[in-house]
């Protein structure tokens, strides 16, 4: 464990908490892509099937929290606050993300076993899972500040992981190319948003795309 990974994980945790609190406090999931949240639930489920392989108490706890929080989020969006779900703007075709991620996991993986292919699928799937949400923001042309904070925390997490991988490569000679390439793709997808966040949201303005 190094500082980059720890802060990355905390940023990831913070993102999930921000989203749950936002939905719970406002009793609304307006502006949130239910499709992205379903993809994240799929990501955590397929990745953490390795839960019986004990790494550390920290890992086990975080995995359980991520899985539970992702299902809770999906439940809030599709059941409890269904009436506030903005499905007219959540129109990204997720099959274009799920199927290629799965086929790629079958082709490029560390080991052709069920657990390993599902782990690899989760890595590829995670790298693009935010696209329905970013698509929704671009479609409506704006995002609430709290949604922006959520996206910033979620995007920062993988960027911090890249620093963690550089650190681990230099200190432990440890590296995982699949995670690194997917992590870079994931971070690049947020760049446009990061720019808007820094230039607008941090200066107190609403995140609004030029018409």
């Amino acid at each position: 464990m190094n500082i980059f990974r720890l802060v990355g994980d905390l940023s990831h945790l913070l993102a999930i908490i921000i989203l749950l609190l936002k939905i719970w406090k406002t009793r609304s999931c307006a502006g949130i892509s239910g499709k992205s949240q379903i993809l994240f639930a799929i990501v955590y489920t397929s990745r953490y099937l390795d839960l019986p392989n004990f790494v550390s108490m920290y890992n086990t706890l975080m995995k359980i929290v991520f899985i539970a929080a992702s299902y809770a989020t999906v439940y809030l969006i599709y059941m409890k606050f269904k009436a506030t779900y903005d499905h007219n703007h959540d129109t990204f075709r997720v099959e274009f993300l799920v199927l290629p991620s799965f086929v790629l996991a079958l082709l490029i993986n560390h080991d052709f076993t069920v657990l390993e292919v599902l782990w690899t699928f989760s890595i590829y799937m995670e790298s693009v899972a935010i696209l329905p949400q970013l698509f929704m923001v671009s479609k409506t042309g704006e995002a609430e500040s709290i949604t922006s904070h959520y996206l910033f925390a979620l995007g920062s997490y993988r960027a911090l992981y890249i620093l963690n991988w550089i650190y681990r490569y230099t200190t432990e000679d440890h590296y995982d190319l699949i995670a690194i390439v997917a992590g870079i793709v994931q971070t690049v997808l947020y760049c446009d948003f990061f720019y808007l966040y820094i230039t607008k949201v941090l200066k107190g303005k609403k995140l609004q795309l030029p018409a």
Binding site: R5, D9, H12, D50, N53, V55, S56, N59, M62, K63, F66, H110, D111, E116, W119, Y161, N164, D176, A179
Partner: peptide, 10 residues
């Protein structure tokens, strides 16, 4: 098992 070792991150 190197795979378990490999997936020691979240």
């Amino acid at each position: 098992n190197f795979l378990i070792d490999l997936h020691d991150e979240l």
